[in-house]
Amino acid sequence: MADTKGPEIAIRRSMLGRARGLGAAKSGTAHWWAMKATSLALIPLTLWMLGSMIGLQGATRAQVAAWAGGPITATLLLATIAALFHHMYLGVQTVIEDYIHNERPRIAWLMVTKGVAWLLGLASAISVLKLAFTG
């Protein structure tokens, strides 16, 4: 090459390479959209949840069960749980991808985090369902 000042480039990206997935138009927007959708959903849900928790200070288990077990409350609780743990995983995923550069620990952390998010979400959802159906 005549130009010796430029960087050493072993692999050059062709138009075909771009079209085959090295370009921008892959699946990146799905993550972004999910983040926006869960953020928007969590604005009212968080306010409702915070207000409810403040009202439930010092409540007995029976009072909490009666509150959580109502059909509208249970629906909103399940919606909050779904949006919250999805949003939480997407956020933690970004942090892990940004700071853990080695592939093996990165994938391990992502899998562990996703597993924990699912387990916590499922445990919360099952608890709400149990309160809704059996009190």
Partner: peptide, 12 residues
């Protein structure tokens, strides 16, 4: 959220 999950699971 661990505290929230604990609270919900305990109530159930």
């Amino acid at each position: 959220t661990l505290m929230l999950v604990w609270w919900l699971v305990a109530a159930a």
